[in-house]
């Protein structure tokens, strides 16, 4: 994984809740045994009409959002299947950051991103930023009002700045382990293998306890 550095680029909206991984990349693109080439499948069924032509009405097809590096969507982004291809497609489609809102439902906070998608993102250097619903709404409004709007992220300080003339700045929370891994870009497996003796010790005890397998 590449270390996550500061990002600055165009920000594009996807005004939908529950964007599922089937929508992010449909099944026919999961047959590849490679790790590259998934940008072709990104939001395929939304980008293209039934006859295979580009749908000019789909937001991300609009000229003003071409080359965007940040994507802002609604709650429960990445729900559904565990396919990491969805994260690969988002990254290979040019995005480095996805922003979505958490929701407050009574006493419960409903996270912005589905668990597996968020996890997969952190393993690939795709930053998922969770903000409040009003904050995300204000970003959607800013995009609506400013052609070619850009935004910047500084992961070290956990800050997202939307570069309107008056600059809208948001700080976000991030799991400290995810932050550290993204900033370092280190290989998880390599890090874990450094604990090989702990694993072997545990395994020996576990095998002694669970005699029936």
């Amino acid at each position: 994984m590449q270390a996550f550095t500061e990002v600055r680029g165009r920000i594009a909206p996807l005004d939908r809740a529950n964007v599922d991984t089937d929508a992010i990349i449909p099944k026919q693109f999961l047959k590849s045994i490679k790790r590259t080439g998934f940008e072709e499948g990104l939001f395929f069924d939304w980008r293209l009409k039934a006859d295979g032509r580009r749908d000019p009405d789909f937001t991300l097809n609009k000229p003003r959002f071409q080359g965007a590096k940040l994507l802002v969507a609604r709650n429960n982004f990445g729900c559904g299947s565990s396919r990491e291809h969805a994260v690969w497609a988002v990254i290979q489609g040019g995005f480095t950051v996805v922003i979505a809102p958490w929701r407050q439902e009574g006493d419960a906070t409903v996270p912005a991103f589905a668990d597996i998608f968020k996890n997969n993102s952190s393993k690939n250097g795709l930053l998922t930023i969770e903000l409040s619903e009003p904050d995300v709404e204000s970003i959607f409004q800013a995009i609506e009002n400013h052609d070619g709007l850009e935004a910047a992220v500084d992961l070290e300080s956990q800050t997202l700045t939307v570069l309107t003339p008056e600059e809208m700045s948001f700080t976000f929370d991030i799991d400290p382990a995810i932050k550290k891994n993204m900033l370092s870009g280190l290989d998880d497996i390599g890090l874990t293998l450094a604990h090989e003796s702990s694993i072997s010790t545990f395994e020996a005890e576990h095998n002694a306890q669970v005699t029936w397998t």
Binding site: E84, V87, N119, N120, N124, I189, I199
Partner: peptide, 11 residues
């Protein structure tokens, strides 16, 4: 995800 599949395989 697939990164974790690899992680479980290896560790």
């Amino acid at each position: 995800g697939t990164s974790e599949v690899e992680h479980v395989m290896a560790t």
